[in-house]
Amino acid sequence: VVDQIRLWQLENERMSTQAGFLFKDFDSVEEYTALSSYAEEIGVLEWKSDKKGLFFVSKYEQIRDYLKSRKSAK
């Protein structure tokens, strides 16, 4: 039992998990930049890679709405 507790501590210290959404397949760099910047602004951005054009957010509703408003503004 002691051993098991030790193992869990090991894992918890070394690894964290968070549920959310990965945004991918952007049409353009501009679209990626605009959306990742917006995600950062509203505080839901957890990880991003400008090189890969991917980002991870904890919540997606606001970004979905922002995407819609961008579409309709065009």
């Binding site: 070394r14 690894m15 959404f21 991918k24 049409d27 990626y32 990880w47 995407l67």
Partner: peptide, 17 residues
């Protein structure tokens, strides 16, 4: 049109990864 995929982000040290 970008896609949002539901999942879990794991942050860990390279050895665990």
């Amino acid at each position: 049109m970008p896609r949002a995929v539901r999942g879990v982000l794991i942050t860990c040290e390279p050895a665990i990864k």
